[in-house]
Write a protein that binds this DNA or RNA. Structure first.
Ligand code: FES
Ligand code: FES
Lengths: 161, 161
DNA sequence: TAAAGGCTGACTAATTTAGTAGGATAAATA
DNA sequence: TATTTATCCTACTAAATTAGTCAGCCTTTA
């Protein structure tokens, strides 16, 4: 089992989409800036999210990505799964054969742990996250940061740079 | 966060010690054979377990390792921790600073998940595992395998090979 | 004194992560 | 129609980690 920035990035980006739902397609450049994730890396992650039918894309200017389903119907476990981070703690993919074809001493322990984690993560949807106080706070901070930057670039543009 | 064979091996080996408690020091060669783990790799893992005071060692012939505490007072989380696999799912080690010094969108989600996992793993002791039916069954299988092998080598020795 | 076993450090192949680089394609707009 | 904006796609990379191997030294018991 592993849970690294890859899975965290994927969930963060999907949550960003959920937060800006209804404003039309969101470009990866926007997400990259707001969430501090490399644009090229996001492209790779969204390729997988798209293949797993979690998001849809619109190409060309004004294009971007949108959730393919209502945010209340996308859970965190799915998102992590889509980018190939499996939250399975066993060494045998639950097959029970990691000790030369037979079940090892601790197999059931890891199965229990996997169930625990999966139950937790699949019980949380993007809609749940959007409603959380801490998420709202961070989101507000990110929005104001972004508009500050936009104003700064506007000034620079207006002054002829 | 990651949970790979490293942590699984450590828990398996510690459980093997717990299962054979009271029979004096257990050699890594025995554990290696019973659990199918490379001897040299076990040595590396036990160096860490010893540094973390989880096991004690006896050198020389008849030597080996023993639990340093009653098996009811050693929990799975400790063992995994001892071999440097941290079960923390955040990207910031709970500091809340992974987005250029500030808290990211999903920080609290990963904190909750980490708590969940830690609570689960620290609630299970080696004594708990020893009592489990599935562990007992696998242990019995491993014992009989081992004695079969010993008989086989005895025969070979007796026949002058 | 030889063997059993712990102890140590250096090395390694393979894999994965977290990207970068460079370009191709599609759609909107000027 | 040309330019711009964006997705899409492939290939490459440095760094880290895993799961070991190898060689040899140190202790203790028989
Ligand atoms: S983890 Fe499933 S058999 Fe070992
Ligand atoms: S995971 Fe803690 S701040 Fe992002």
């Amino acid at each position: 089992m592993r849970l690294t920035t890859k899975g965290r990035y994927a969930v963060t980006a999907m949550l960003d989409l959920a937060l800006h739902e209804g404003k039309g397609p969101i470009s990866l450049a926007d997400i990259s800036e707001r969430q501090g994730i490399s644009l090229s890396y996001l492209e790779q992650l969204f390729a997988k999210l798209r293949r797993n039918q979690l998001v849809g894309s619109v190409r060309g200017p004004g294009g971007g990505y949108q959730l393919n389903r209502p945010k209340a119907e996308i859970d965190v476990a799915e998102v992590i799964d889509a980018v190939n981070e499996n939250v399975d703690a066993t060494g045998c993919n639950r097959r029970g054969d990691c000790q030369s074809g037979e079940v090892c001493l601790t197999h059931h322990l890891w199965c229990d742990l996997s169930d625990q984690i999966h139950t937790f993560l699949s019980g949380i949807t993007l809609a749940d996250l959007v409603e959380r106080k801490d998420v709202k706070e961070v989101s507000i901070r990110q929005e104001s940061r972004q508009s500050e930057k936009m104003i700064a670039t506007d000034i620079r543009a207006a002054s002829g740079l």
